[in-house]
Design a binder for these strands. Structure first.
Lengths: 361, 361
DNA sequence: GACTCGAGTGTATGCGCATACATTGTGGGA
DNA sequence: TCCCACAATGTATGCGCATACACTCGAGTC
């Protein structure tokens, strides 16, 4: 790596001042064509690459947006990376680990959306995982590098967000719409669940229903539960005639809860507040030879990929994850354009996706 | 957003010089504890967040690593992001699009590995998708922001990489080990396929085999094909006794190729150079009532998640994608530490994963 | 008691760029 | 013909930080 050329080198080589070089790069229209060509030629010859640090310093903005997502360091070994030794290739049996492909996929799509939208608006995207230790250091480190920050809900403690939000716009992604000063982007959890539940209660005419809620600290879950209750009201079903249980959003939790449910009288439908729970329920039902959807209807929420491949395929409410990422970036840029905006809440539309576990009637 | 405080503000407030403030943040041990505490108190009170741009400029390094991956703008609409209008939730039928979860997942895991390793080494991670248009602008834009760049193979034209590589280390991820000046990180494609093919040829004793290769411009594919040929030699099978066809790495391509294969005499095994192709083959076999593995063995390569959920589950060679990401960052940091290193090639170990489509004998 | 030495801190400078302002050149209107 | 407006370019400055170097001061050293 030779020492990187600077505007000064380019200016000297093309016989202009550094201001002109800068203008060629930032506002080409302000420079005569002849001059511009000479400068660009020098740029290419020297292999000039503008320093984003210097530009950021001078322009007082970095044109970078940060995206914070939940951490995962537990799962990766601390060992150094090694090359293969020799050509030995082990042969192992099925490695199915259903745990790993849920949140990942969710995040992957959010990232995709954020990246696309950021690029369209002329920003680069920086990513970081929220980690258990020294989270604070990470957050301020990232905060110093970006013009705005999107944070997956509950990845970062509130007081830390507040600290960062004193300097740059912060948007909270896919959590609750809380009454705080942050911008929020999320999906219509309540209406989604309400529509799906009404489909079961009315179109399928099934009133004998169990609802499996998620952890109490999840704001999404609270909204979904409310949606379910609204559906009960819509359909004229008294809440005391249905069971509402709590699980923990995991597949294992779904299995355990399904076992509890089946210990009593078997319901005609089990509505789950997320897909993983529903997959766990399906596991238990299949294992006991209970047919889905003939004996029991099952539904989830989220639209994770695994639900498309389950047996039977899972009916669910699909969240627009790519759009969530895009909306987050949109919210940040909107606030950068006008810092005095009132705190905003974007609620993105969802879709009920009917598959085998609760088919179209 | 109030104007961000700087080292000068912190220095003034805590009654020290800016040099001391800087030292408290960068090398705390060099400052007396009493002083340090005063400075840190001022930092907190003012909500000081160091400017990465200024630091990067002064220190001549950004502590950011860039990750370039294949683009995907085609799939996302250009419309602005809207909030939900009212609470209308559409109800749609199954939306299965098998296309979307392959490369994504692959990239997601690479990203995960890169992010983890970067963080461990004190770097932030910036991501960008290689896009059709104005790729050049994007690349140099990112290049100016980072200390090193990891690029998914064939995302960026070679001459552009060469341009960037004049300034910062560039590592090519998961492509061929080409004879160029870049560092390379990839998986043992050849040995992986060789081992899997030998398992079919020897352990299963199946010699009546068709091999479906991928596109000719894929270096990974070339390595896999070589691995297959080595296995033929290992097992004493003449190449003229097997068929080698070419497809395009897609599920649709797999379907079409399977149809071609079945037009002639049906083989006992079909080895595919990637998982998607294999999934397409499975589609056709199931549709024609041909049993897998009883009638035909099928294998893939990559270890994508969809292969764990297929019917039957797909035997494959699993690439360590998280490790690829980590290794890429490792390679970059190694070169930053010692720019005079010879070009390196990391080849990461793979695993043959036996599932239903070609079970353990 | 003068001297050395090192720990702790301050002063001054430059990193590479954007940009306000100054300067020069050019054509059109009076 | 002279002046002015505007286009094109140059000059000078500061963005916020890291760091080389200078400086101070107190504890040893002899």
């Amino acid at each position: 790596m030779a020492k990187a050329p600077t505007v000064y080198d380019v200016a000297e080589r093309s016989g202009v001042s550094i201001a002109t070089v800068s203008r060629v790069l930032r506002s080409p229209a302000a420079v005569r064509e002849h001059t511009r060509e000479r400068v660009l030629a020098a740029v290419t010859e020297l292999g000039y690459v503008p320093s984003a640090a210097a530009r950021g310093l001078a322009a007082r903005r970095t044109n970078v947006i940060g995206l914070f997502f939940p951490g995962h360091d537990e799962t990766v070994p601390d060992q150094p990376v090694d090359s293969a030794r020799g050509d030995t290739v082990p042969i192992v049996d099925d490695d199915s680990d259903t745990a790993s492909d849920t949140e990942n996929l969710y995040f992957d799509e959010v990232l995709r959306g954020a990246e696309i939208e950021a690029w369209r608006r002329g920003f680069a995207l920086m990513v970081a995982a929220g980690r258990g230790s020294s989270r604070e250091a990470l957050v301020t480190d990232i905060a110093g590098r970006v013009d705005g920050l999107a944070v997956l809900a509950r990845t970062v403690p509130d007081e830390l967000l507040a600290y960062v939000a004193r300097r740059i716009p912060v948007v909270i992604l896919a959590g609750a719409q809380r009454a705080d000063d942050f911008d929020h982007v999320s999906a219509s959890n309540g209406p989604g669940m309400r529509t799906l539940a009404n489909y079961v209660l009315q179109d399928h005419g099934v009133h004998d229903v169990v609802y499996i809620a998620g952890p109490t600290d999840s704001p999404d879950d609270a909204e979904r539960l409310t949606g379910f209750r609204n559906a009960l009201a819509d359909s004229g079903v008294a809440e005391r005639n249905v069971r509402i249980l709590r699980s923990d959003f995991t597949r294992d939790g779904g299995r355990a809860t399904a076992a509890r449910i089946l210990a009593a009288e078997r319901p005609r439908a089990i509505l789950c507040s997320n897909d993983e729970t529903a997959l766990g329920v399906l596991d238990v039902l299949e294992q006991r030879g209970i047919r889905v959807p003939e004996d029991v209807l099952v539904t989830g929420f989220d639209g994770i990929t695994a639900g498309r491949h389950s047996r039977p395929k899972l009916t669910t409410v699909h969240q627009p994850m790519v759009e969530l990422g895009r909306a987050a970036v949109h919210a940040i840029t909107a606030r950068l354009d006008d810092p005095n905006l009132e705190p905003q809440a974007f609620t993105l539309p969802v879709e009920v996706v009917l598959r085998e576990s609760c088919p179209r009637v």
